[in-house]
Design a protein around this nucleic acid. Structure first.
Length: 147
DNA sequence: GCCAACGTTGGC
DNA sequence: GCCAACGTTGGC
């Protein structure tokens, strides 16, 4: 999962203990949360749009998928007039922190590592805020952080 | 249904 | 701040 640290950094998640991953308004990212994410699944937490883009933490899915409440709220910036409670359009999961990585694993480092070839995060033009990670890629990123 | 215009994302 | 990528919108 990607987040701009200026809006919600891994440290914010560590402080809060749990958060709803609301505001995702991309169908593919929604599908990953709604169809593929279940309680206990591990998450690489990536900081985007910052000086040194990097995976910085490990998190975990803390709820089953459910409708994003902000879609029903006219005062929310994420309000969707076409969504109804009977037919929600947007889904999310809650997530919780597991641990901060021993060190950030930078985008540049990951791009240069042949072991991570094919990782969705590294794909050209990728803009999804939620995307799958192959288990061996995740393990490799964690091993890099552990040195 | 096509496609140009436009807006957003995000690395650099 | 620039620009490439790409999703969305809207005219036809």
């Amino acid at each position: 999962m990607k987040s701009e640290p200026d809006s919600y950094a891994y440290a914010d998640l560590a402080r809060d203990g749990r958060t709803a991953w609301d505001g995702v308004r991309n169908y593919q990212a929604r599908n990953y949360m709604r169809d593929d994410m279940r309680v206990g699944d591990l998450i690489l937490y990536y900081h985007s749009s910052t000086k040194v883009p990097a995976v910085v933490g490990l998190a975990r899915v803390a709820s089953e998928p459910y409708p994003d409440p902000t879609q029903f709220d006219p005062r929310s910036g994420y309000h969707d007039a076409k969504a109804t409670r009977e037919a929600p359009r947007w889904f999310l999961v809650d997530i919780e922190p597991v641990r901060e990585l021993e060190r950030p694993v930078t985008l540049a480092e990951m791009k240069a590592d042949p072991a991570l070839a094919g990782m969705a995060l590294l794909a050209r033009g990728n803009r999804l805020s939620v995307m799958p990670v192959e288990p061996e890629h995740a393990r490799h990123v964690l091993a890099l952080a552990a040195g």
